[in-house]
Write a protein that binds this DNA or RNA. Structure first.
Lengths: 105, 105
DNA sequence: TACGATGTACGACGAACACCGTACATTATC
DNA sequence: GATAATGTACGGTGTTCGTCGTACATCGTA
């Protein structure tokens, strides 16, 4: 009955090339774009119609382990949000520049 | 005897995920960091002591085809420079945010 | 406890990648 | 033309990635 646990790297442990890699995939870029307003969204609501669950789990794990997103269990679901404060503190302007463009490129 | 030709994508054809992927490798990030002052540098002078020539050719090709760098033949050598104007026009602030951090992360 | 809903773990597959040695092409100089 | 310097193309190897189906775990509710 232990509650679900998710590994999140410390803010100081974020590396630029890992973050850039996490954002170098169109699917993950689309996920991040859906989170750019700062709100939490349930995992199952992200691109639900176009991406199978196991594939989405894989992408969310890469984003989370790179330090780009935070995953918080809430009942049966998982709420995903951007770690905007931590990323901004370490790489100022990076997320802003990436999110400004949406994900059409 | 045709002079050497290098494919460069049009500025309008740059895509965000390709650029981010090109910059998601520590070696390529180090190369870009050496070019951030805007000057041209010879291919053979970039990380020459730590990366074999054929490997460097591989990385420079990825950077060039993503639209991050420009390659210009000059005699026997190849001069590499950042396509800062084109990248900035399409993704304002992106290169600045990435280059601000050097390449230690 | 039984059930349905949500998400993860694991395995498999094909594709792409990083790395590098070798052979080749291009260039300048002798 | 011959030679040396620089960089590319090609091939091979091992690794990683993206995708997804299936089985399992967790959670809320009946």
């Amino acid at each position: 009955m232990s509650p679900r646990k998710f590994f999140h790297p410390d803010a100081a442990a974020l590396t630029l090339h890992r973050i850039l890699f996490a954002l170098s995939d169109p699917t993950r870029l689309a996920v991040v774009s859906e989170l750019k307003d700062g709100a939490e969204r349930a995992s199952g609501d992200l691109l639900a119609e176009s991406v199978p669950r196991s594939t989405m789990t894989h992408h969310l794990k890469i984003l989370r382990e790179a330090g780009v997103t935070r995953t918080r269990p809430e009942g049966m679901r998982c709420l995903i949000s951007l770690r905007r404060d931590d990323v901004d503190a370490r790489f100022p302007g990076l997320l802003e520049a990436i999110l400004a463009h949406g994900h059409s490129g």
